[in-house]
């Protein structure tokens, strides 16, 4: 089963990290990614740009384009990992590893994938 591990945290707080703090968190997350990758269980990984760069298309008879993110929340979706796990327990273990590595507040939401097409866009 494929699981998405979605990273939620306050963008304000993450934005207040120094570059060194940010780099250190990413480096620790990379170690967890490497472990999963060496087991052949890591799919795509994405870090999203800040919600200020987001635009929302509201569905309706005539779709409406709005500046800003879909919802105003205290914590924002900052990125995600796609990980292959035998069951929920394994997925939660992976999420715990990420949580320990990041060491900040916020949360990881674990959601099974229904459809997954890896696609073929190049990495950035």
């Amino acid at each position: 089963m494929l699981y998405a591990i979605l990273c939620y945290d306050s963008e304000d707080v993450v934005g207040a990290w120094t570059k060194e703090e940010d780099d250190a968190v990413i480096a620790r997350l990379r170690l967890v990614e490497d472990k999963l990758a060496s087991q052949g269980r890591l799919g795509p990984v994405a870090r999203l740009l800040p919600t200020t760069s987001a635009t929302t298309v509201r569905k309706g008879r005539e779709a409406m384009v709005l500046d800003g993110p879909f919802a105003e929340t205290k914590e924002q979706l900052l990125g995600f990992f796609i990980v292959e796990c035998a069951n929920l327990d394994e997925a939660l273990d992976a999420a715990r590893d990420f949580a320990r590595a990041s060491g900040s507040a916020g949360a990881y939401e674990v959601r099974p994938l229904g459809v997954f097409r890896p696609g073929a866009v190049r990495a950035v």
Binding site: S10, D12, V13, A16, W17, S102, G103, S104
Partner: peptide, 15 residues
């Protein structure tokens, strides 16, 4: 990230 660093960032962003 240490707890202190996290609190520091939280205080800066809430300021």
């Amino acid at each position: 990230m240490t707890e202190l660093a996290w609190i520091g960032a939280a205080l800066t962003s809430a300021r």
